[in-house]
Computed example of a mutant assay.
Amino acid sequence: MTTFLNKHKSLTTFDLKVIGLVLMVFDHIHQMFAGAGVPGWFNWLGRPVATIFFFVSVEGFTHTHDKKKYLWRLLIGYWIMGVGDALIQALFSVGNVALMNNIFGDLFVGVSAMYGYEKFKAALKKHDLKSGLSGSVLIGLPLLLSLYLHFSVQGRGFFQLSNILVNFIYPSAAGAENAYFCYLAFFLYLVKDNRKLQYLFIVIAAIWYTGYLSYWQFNDLFTVNIQWMMIFAIIPIALYNSKRGKSMKYFFYIFYPAHIWGLFILASLLGVK
């Protein structure tokens, strides 16, 4: 099997992004048009998407010439997506669909941890306390904010307002689209030079995530609790040849919000319930 995969590693970073985008569109068509009868298997196709993009973020962070700029792009994307989601939902509605999509938050948390780890590791070698502290903040702040949100979620007045502001200003792990599992990107980064260990982390995350969503009762694995299907991300990742391919640097930043908002507006105009 290993020999076969080595001979057929033909997918570039560009190809992985395209595969993720196509599967993502199917998933979001189901999200917006399930009330119109779109079949559940559209949702199945979307399960590997986040894992593919987590893997791509590891490659992107590893090879970018400006890691700080990469992190800022994700944060700005998070802000724009957050404002856009709120505005679109204020103007349109699709049954009980809550427009909470914002993968930029997940990617930011994962890449922030990668960047923090690099800064912390470099600080240890140079005995640089300031860099060490900033690295620790980058890794831990999304978790600390999650802890704050957990205790403030039932508060009133100031606490409710601060909860909203915290979620908008800085991504937390708890508020991410995939919750704490966005840290899978960080673990994939830690073993970025060992593809087999990356597969293992994906499998562990799939099992844990599935159990977490079903409270460790593994039922309805093909109807309700289908998160285990994220393991299929291993297939395109195994065919990855570590080459960049064509550049689509800003296409994802534009296409991701545009297609979600467009599908939501279309479903609203068509009266999907």
Rank of each mutant, 00 (worst) to 15 (best):
L188G: 05
S162M: 13
W72G: 15
L270I: 14
N6D: 10
F33E: 10
A113M: 12
F53Y: 10
A176E: 05
L71W: 02
W44P: 05
S136F: 15
F159K: 07
V97P: 07
T64V: 05
E59T: 04
L71K: 04
Y115L: 09
N101L: 05
D220T: 13
Y70H: 06
Y70K: 03
M114N: 03
S146K: 11
G60D: 04
V203N: 05
I231Y: 11
I76M: 11
G175E: 05
G40T: 13
S146Y: 06
V38Y: 08
A176F: 02
N102I: 01
T210H: 10
Y170S: 01
H63S: 07
Y170W: 12
L5G: 02
K130H: 09
N102R: 06
I164A: 14
L11P: 00
N167W: 12
D27T: 07
N225C: 04
N102V: 02
A233G: 14
L5W: 06
I29T: 14
G157I: 02
G82T: 12
M114Y: 07
F55A: 03
G157C: 05
I103Y: 09
A36R: 10
S134P: 06
N178K: 13
H30I: 07
Y240V: 03
Q31H: 10
F151W: 12
K68I: 07
L149D: 10
Y240P: 00
Q31A: 15
G20N: 00
L11H: 00
R73W: 06
L221H: 12
Y240N: 01
T3I: 09
N6P: 02
F218E: 09
L138M: 06
G245M: 06
L87T: 09
I237Y: 07
I260L: 15
G116N: 08
Y199H: 07
T13W: 08
P39H: 09
K69H: 15
F53R: 04
T223H: 12
G271D: 13
N219I: 13
T51F: 03
I207E: 05
A86K: 14
L269M: 15
Y212C: 03
V137M: 04
G262W: 11
Y199G: 02
M32D: 04
S57D: 08
V18A: 09
S136V: 13
